[in-house]
Simulated assay, not measured.
Amino acid sequence: MMRFLSSLMKAMRGAFGGIWSFVTWPLTWFGGGGSQSAAADVPRPPRAKAPAAPGLTPEELDRAHKRTVSQVRGWILSTLDAGAHQCLPPGLPRGVASWLPGLSTSQLVTLSRSGIAGISAHIGGVRPVEGVPSVRALPVARLDAVPPERDDESFKQDLRAAYALC
């Protein structure tokens, strides 16, 4: 029954679509209506991006962003500690998950030194961290030897804090 109704609607749109274009044709003189509007030639300002997750409140989006930032920071610190790529945390956005393994050791160190606020601004595209590529799919990078700062006490504190968040 649904198939029949669907095919009937499709046939009606095909039959009366031409009539609708003819009826609305005079409106194109004034920049509205019709299939080809005169306003189509006027450049429009860029559209605002649609929300990342429709149906979520701003508070929920903020919590999700904070969770992503803390997961990214934890992954960076554990990767630097181990000297090899670690498993990505579950629930990371696809773009971030395809970006992280493509960062080199020096880029990971730079990003970790920028702190939570720097990582958040970089992932959000608000203020990029210098020397770190923007969030986009990157080929997996080979990690160099772990830098000597790894023995630094502040790095160890950051690492303990990151493990506590997981």
Rank of each mutant, 00 (worst) to 15 (best):
G32E: 13
G32P: 06
G34V: 03
G34P: 01
Q36C: 07
Q36P: 02
S37L: 08
A38L: 15
A39P: 01
A39E: 11
V42R: 05
V42P: 04
P43N: 00
R44S: 12
R44C: 09
P45Y: 09
P46C: 05
A48P: 02
A48N: 05
K49M: 12
K49D: 12
A50C: 06
P51A: 08
A52C: 05
P54W: 14
G55S: 04
L56D: 10
L56V: 09
L56Y: 14
T57L: 14
E59G: 07
L61Y: 07
D62P: 02
D62K: 13
D62E: 14
A64C: 06
K66T: 08
R67G: 05
R67M: 13
R67C: 04
V69Q: 01
V69S: 00
V69I: 08
S70L: 15
S70T: 07
S70Y: 13
V72T: 08
V72P: 00
V72G: 01
V72Y: 05
R73M: 11
G74M: 08
G74D: 04
W75N: 02
I76Y: 05
I76W: 10
I76Q: 09
I76K: 00
L77H: 10
L77S: 03
S78Y: 11
T79R: 02
L80C: 01
L80P: 00
D81R: 03
D81V: 00
A82K: 15
G83R: 06
G83K: 03
H85A: 05
Q86D: 05
Q86G: 10
C87K: 14
L88C: 03
P89F: 15
P90V: 15
P90G: 10
L92S: 01
L92F: 07
P93I: 04
G95V: 05
S98A: 15
W99Q: 05
L100G: 02
L100A: 06
G102I: 04
G102C: 04
G102P: 00
L103Y: 03
L103K: 01
S104Y: 12
T105Y: 07
T105S: 12
T105V: 06
T105Q: 06
S106N: 15
V109R: 00
V109F: 09
V109W: 08
L111A: 01
L111W: 10
S112Q: 13
G115R: 00
I116D: 12
I116R: 08
A117Q: 13
A117C: 11
I119A: 01
A121V: 04
H122N: 01
I123D: 04
G125H: 07
V126F: 10
P128C: 02
P128Y: 09
E130K: 07
E130G: 09
E130R: 07
V132T: 02
V132H: 03
P133N: 11
P133K: 03
S134P: 08
V135D: 01
V135Q: 03
R136E: 11
A137K: 10
L138C: 03
L138A: 05
V140E: 13
A141Q: 10
L143Y: 02
D144K: 00
P147T: 15
P147Q: 13
P147F: 14
